[in-house]
Amino acid sequence: MTAAIDSEVIAESTIPRKNGELVFNAPWEGRAFGMAVALRQAEPYSWTEFREYLAREIAAAGPADDGTHYYELWVAAFEHLLSDRGLVAPEETQRRTHEYLDGIREEVF
C-alpha cells in the first residue's frame, strides 16, 4: 500500500513541467500546434508565411491580449492559411465545426 502511494508520488513528480509551466494548457492546443507542423510534410510552407498570418491575428487582438488566447489566434491563422491555399474552405470548416457542436459528429480529445 505504502509502496503504491510512493510510486504515484514519484510518477507525479517526474511529469515534465518545463520550469513549472505545462507546454499546452488543454489537449486542443497541442492538436492545433501539431496540425500546423504536420501539414508542412504534405504542403510545404515556410514559417515566415505562417508567422505573417499569426502576426496579423495577434495585431488584431490588440494590447489587451494577455497571451492566454494564443492558440485561438493560432487556429484562426491556420484557417486563413488553409483557405488561401485552397486546401480547406471556410464554409467547410464552419459546417464541420457545427456538426461537432451539435453532436452530429462525435469524437473525443
Binding site: W28, A42, E79, L82, L87, V88, L101, D102, G103, R105
Partner: peptide, 25 residues
Amino acid sequence: HHSELSEIEARVLALESLLTEKGLI
C-alpha cells in the same frame, strides 16, 4: 444534440478531421 465541446475544441476537431480526410495530415 448539444455536445459539451467548446467552440474552439469543435473547430480544432473539424480541422483535424478535414485535413485527415483530404490526406494532408
